[in-house]
Design a protein around this nucleic acid. Structure first.
Lengths: 248, 248
DNA sequence: TAGTGGTCTAGACCACGCA
DNA sequence: GCGTGGTCTAGACCACTAA
């Protein structure tokens, strides 16, 4: 066992104090990162984990509650604690904020326009924290909402993380593929929104006039270990749809 | 004392079970709503509250932690628990999502264009859940970011909630005024974003050409008791700025 | 009925802010 | 030094699920 929790001894002088339950949380995240715990799997019970690690059940509980708050695990009373999956329902509510003005949210269809790999541009390298001259995979696709083309986007990925992705069938649910196919779990994302005039290329894909107002969404997706794993730039038409944001 | 916590007895049959700490949380929210606890005030210590209510300190703690997670109270180790205030810093990070593309976030200046009261339109009535022919106050203003006009917005309020607001000086920080002047605390807000072409009136206020792409933010602000208290429609220019959204 | 997570309690000790 | 919230533990009981 390479995991360990240690809050006593000379290693905990004055600064650098970290609560036990957070150390336990970090240990659990490590198990998720290195694939010891995989999506959908049932974790051992709180009691078993507590006995294994050598802390109280309450401390394990605080650690698991923290992971549940980050949507990394799902707790179900009477059944157990499970590693979260990137199924469509989760994506739809956690990462896809575009909803119809009235009516139910629905998962968009996708149409891949182009997929290729090449050397990262300076901007791509900067956003994805890549070494000079690293390879990236670029996916251009159009997504349909309610049957109409509404999103034109480019997804840029570090090729090193996703070997062979450019040569395979690309499913609708990319984050599910990252997890199931490459062991890469997207933990969170930062989005920056702007209103812009639609560039000619995107306008053609969406079948509207160039210069039409579009919502530009620039998203950087972050993996469990904190590293950026996807840069996505989406142009969205917003008549009949809106981007929903809840401020608490 | 009208507050009470009761989880035994015939009132708790099979359904309708509600954890004690949530009942305590609700009791605390009631105290915030009715003004027994006011912004900035220090709450009694956990021990005192536990003794007063007749539950354990741990249960009070869970209730207060829940309120802290909702940004309704602020907990400071060694000092105490305080009712949250709508100071500029809180607004800036919790409710104002527009940030410069590079550089520090800053609070925008405001210039009131017009303020008046009148009968609610059907749409205003629907959004604010008003009775037919209720009065509303409308505030039109322009907000400046980095010295440049960047936001043109209309704020619509139920006149009954804010008597005399249309006749007084309107400060930059509206939510602070609602709280300090009228005992109305904005607890959260729902925003819907679209990209639109700027209407002529807003274009004139912002000194750009009509039809220029703008970010339309439609915000409904919700009070502590769950009722809508403000409807705000903002047209934002987004060159040099973006709307930041973190997905977790 | 057995096992899981959820709630509630009680008490000890720690880190922090302040007088 | 004192009082605050923060952490950690231990144990009891409850609600839910599945066999």
């Amino acid at each position: 066992m390479t995991d360990h929790v240690d809050n006593d001894g000379a290693a905990s002088p004055k600064l650098g104090f970290r609560p036990l339950y957070q150390q336990v949380r970090d240990m659990f995240v490590r198990r998720l990162v290195d694939g010891r715990w995989t999506p959908g799997q049932a974790l051992p019970s709180e009691m078993e984990l507590a006995a294994e690690i050598g802390v109280s059940q309450g401390t394990v509980r605080k650690a698991l509650d923290a992971l549940a708050a980050e949507n990394l695990v799902v707790r179900r009373q009477g059944r157990g604690t499970f590693v979260a999956e990137h199924d469509e329902a989760r994506i739809l509510f956690q990462f896809f904020k575009l909803a119809p003005d009235d009516g139910e949210r629905a998962f968009p269809e996708s149409r891949v326009i182009h997929i290729a790999r090449g050397a990262a541009t300076p901007e791509e390298g900067a956003r994805l924290a890549l070494k000079r001259r690293a390879q990236v995979i670029r996916i251009d696709r159009v997504r349909l909402l309610g049957g109409r083309p509404a999103i034109s986007e480019r997804v840029t990925l570090p090729a090193a993380l996703f070997p062979g992705l450019d040569a395979r069938e690309v499913p609708n649910n990319l984050y599910g593929l990252y997890a199931a196919g490459y062991g890469v779990t997207v933990a969170n994302a930062r989005e920056r929104l702007k209103a812009v005039g639609l560039p000619p290329e995107q306008a053609a894909h969406l079948d509207v006039a160039p210069g039409a107002p579009a919502l530009l969404i620039d998203r950087l997706a972050i993996a469990l270990d904190g590293s950026p794993v996807e840069w996505r730039v989406s142009y969205c038409l917003t008549d009949g749809f809106h981007y929903a944001s809840d401020l608490r």
